[in-house]
Amino acid sequence: MKIIHLTRTLLVLALTVGASSATLAQATLLNVSYDPTRELYQDFNAAFAKYWKDQSGETVTIQQSHGGSGKQARSVIDGLEADVVTLALAYDIDAIAEKGKLIPQDWQKRLPNNSSPYTSTIVFLVRKGNPKGIKDWDDLVKPGVSVVTPNPKTSGGARWNYLAAWGYALKKPDGDEAKAREFVGRLYKNVPVLDSGARGSTTTFVERGIGDVLIAWENEAYLARKELGPDQFEIVTPSLSILAEPPVTVVDRVVDKKGARKVAEAYLEYLYSPEGQNIAGKNFYRPRDPQIAAQYAGRFAKVTLFTIDEVFGGWQKAQKTHFDDGGVYDQIAVQH
């Protein structure tokens, strides 16, 4: 009988906890984001809450959910009530528009710079002293080099990695589609583990000590080096890489139902403000604002960047050719 008493007490306790969080619910936003943005939004949410309090007097609590970009988009389509999504690539937000019908098709035109308030690129993280002498993409396809990158089927970062390698091979003096395909095929032959998200790959590389080189988001590589010791890892920037634009948008169906459109839009606009851009720079993202970008220019290596529109004709096309079932990535994976 004591057990029944105990469960009853617990139940009452839990219900009170539930009820108290429900009364606060009015001023909450849920930001569904991808893997490496945890630290960025931790800083940014605190700054925005303060800004919003000054502006409107309203207390806003921002809740975060992180995971592989594709997986997060799937959750939003399945009913995870995100007020804003801040994902790794436009295709995943396109999916929310198309399959979930939660946002209009032209969502990417609603905010400046393709709705991407910050950019990043793809770089290499190697172990101290760079024992395998990795300098550029060509070194990754050499036999005996073990490369860590996540699975392009589930991870947004992994798709940027793949496209960066493809673009590099294509833009070589004698490069063409067939050669690019062969190059990327050889690269993936060197991959021992395919994690489902970018953060998983980072822990595989830095914590489990697997692999000679990690292909990673620039911000993720800098953060890993900062968190886990600059004496253990080095960052290698290749000669050519891709301009990664992680986009953001308000989820219309959710904010309109909750009546949170105003604060959700202010939240995203604040990302473009000098403060927001500063926080992005501090967290190793490349700010869009030229003035703020200049302040952080010393942090990042100079690298020639190509865009996905230039080389692949946009995300829709790239996704269809390379990552959909039966696409080029699947064909390469089968050959292993």
Binding site: L10, L11, L13
Partner: peptide, 13 residues
């Protein structure tokens, strides 16, 4: 912790 206890307190009975 609270959520885990709540879930168990409903599921187990």
């Amino acid at each position: 912790i609270a959520l885990t206890l709540l879930v168990a307190a409903i599921a187990v009975p």
